[in-house]
Design a protein around this nucleic acid. Structure first.
Lengths: 195, 195
DNA sequence: ACCTGAACACCGTTCAAGT
DNA sequence: ACCTGAACACCGTTCAAGT
């Protein structure tokens, strides 16, 4: 926050006059980007070819995650409680759902994958490449193609677990960390000395 | 660190006698778990069916990420500079490579996917389900199956980008955040008042 | 009304003093 | 040799005082 204030040419306290907390500042930026992606999705609905439309949407979304670390982190950490984020999420989900439906009917997307699945998949390429991203900045594209291959009707096998409902999707991420739990076990014994 | 010390029944400073920093403490735990996964992989090499062996390895790895938040975060954040982590990574990569090779020869894995790809894919199901994980703790299994479908030879299309080399893999994650860059653009204009 | 910067809270880390 | 807890550094946040 100190660096943000400095770069904006104001005192630290002033930033808090514009945004009540760091989280809300991040949320405001995230929200703008999410809305822009939703707008892109809506534009792509005018595309003649449903397959190309969905492909471009997913690529655009994956690119957004790959090119902006804070967006990628916010996407998993941010709560849908804020009205603005909720609205943008809703808009994005609807665009994705429409794009998915068209692609599905055209036989370009497997029957059991929903628009909500697609939205959740947008960060997959970046997160998979994550540990190696500094050595190979373009590696995420490899995993984008791998994910796309998994979305083909020819590849489809039973997914065994139901897609997230709209409500599941909208109650996402209350707490800072991702939703993965802490392990229930005991702490490992302390070694007498590690160094 | 204060809570860890309290739970261990020692003073804060004592934890620093055993581990030089919080990062190194996390690394030590992560290392143990990584090594256990590598051992599982090695055991699975004795499995008669190459397809089942690889399937179990991936499932086991995905489960480890899904069940332990700190492991999942450490997997992308931790540097391979530490000798112990380096050794465990190397061991895991070799097991994955051997499992992948066997599965590939048996026609159970597409020809263009490597063991390093497999290791990177282990956190995908959890990260994809991430935002919805609190509402749907088992959702990661859906995306595990989706990833598996992408790994089938029948699904294979050109991945356009080369697999990470062993060296790419071993120079992973120097800095705390994942390797995704900060956006180059200007800061968005401050609204006169957000609240 | 908005800006400012000293002060506070929190948490990882250090280190002089104790045993 | 190992443990202790006061003290420090860092960073998000608050708020009384200034304009």
């Amino acid at each position: 926050m100190a660096r943000i204030a400095a770069r904006a040419g104001v005192a630290k306290g002033t930033v808090f006059n514009h945004f009540p907390s760091k989280d809300e500042l991040v949320a405001a930026i995230f929200c703008e980007q999410l809305d822009a992606l939703a707008a892109t999705g809506e534009t792509l609905l005018e595309q003649a070819d449903p397959r190309t439309a969905l492909l471009r949407f997913i690529t655009e979304g994956a690119e957004l995650h790959a090119g902006d670390r804070s967006f990628c982190e916010a996407a998993t950490a941010i709560s849908r409680a804020h009205p603005a984020i909720r609205a943008a999420s809703e808009r994005l989900a609807q665009a994705a759902e429409a794009l998915a439906a068209r692609a599905r009917e055209a036989g370009a997307l497997r029957a059991d994958v929903t628009g909500h699945d697609i939205v959740l998949l947008l960060n997959a390429p970046t997160r998979i490449a994550g540990p190696v991203a500094t050595a190979r900045p373009e590696l995420w594209r490899r995993y984008l193609h791998l994910v796309l291959d998994g979305l083909r009707p020819e590849a489809a096998h039973d997914l065994t677990v139901a897609a997230p409902s709209h409500q599941d999707f909208m109650t996402a991420a209350e707490e800072p960390g991702s939703g993965v739990p802490c392990p229930p076990g005991e702490l490992p014994a302390l070694p007498t000395s590690a160094r």
